[in-house]
Amino acid sequence: MKKILTALRYILIYLIFIIIALIVLYPIAFAISGAFNKGKSLASMNILPIPNNPTTENFTRLFTTTNYLSWYKNSLTIACLNSVCTTFIVLITAYVFSRFRFRLKKAALMSFLILNMFPNAIGMVAIYVVLSRLGLSDNFLGLVLVYCAGNIPYNTWLLKGYLDTIPRSIDEAARVDGSGHLSTFFRIILPNTLPMIAFLAVTSFTQPWMDFILPRFILRSDKNKTLAVGLFEMINGRSNDNFTMFAAGALLIAVPFVILFVINQKYLVKIMSTGAVKE
């Protein structure tokens, strides 16, 4: 009797898994089939995620009738700049916080924690005014500076926590041997921090792709439009007419993201759980 109950329980669990898997997969499969569907509209789609008369004409249309490539290029530029900028500044800031004693250190770390709670969208009008004043409105660099500044508080905490686990005795030994601040940093700290640096570089690279409010606010000209804003304008209010083209455009972004995530799954679990224990 007990065996039957246990078996039933596992059957139930598998059943739940399968149902959830279907719910998870259906929207994704529907979008993929949309990308290869013949016809432009939502109404031309099958209910089941199987494309009607499979074709690649949506991709052709995407490249010929919209500025998709230019949006992609803009987003890529911003992502690369943001990745380099954020990693560099956060690395230096976290290093100093981890290894040096100075006035107001505690106060600074505390204010980072509090600042992290407020989304930069609250100050969006002001950010625009600041950038206009600096002559950086409608400029990739301006947007990247805003992202980067917003990334500093949280990531500094994250990286500082990681650096604290590298024993100080190692860099003190290097200091005794006559190594300066900078060479200690490059020879000792940097090689030991590579996994975390990779994490920072990747997260700050992925961040700008689908961010919407700031690029919408800051990059006002057509030629500087990013993917998020471009796709938004393609689909907003016209979901029925432009669906298949949107699906094609979305697919081209989602595929690299999904591959990145699935490959780094184990690594991600590790980083997230250490973050949880440390916080």
Partner: peptide, 25 residues
């Protein structure tokens, strides 16, 4: 000075793009 110089880019950026916008808003 090393600490302060190394921290200054981060602080200037936070001041201009996080704190001043919050106060301004």
């Amino acid at each position: 000075a090393f600490s302060y110089v190394a921290l200054s880019p981060a602080f200037v950026m936070i001041a201009f793009f996080v704190i001043i916008p919050l106060v301004y808003a």
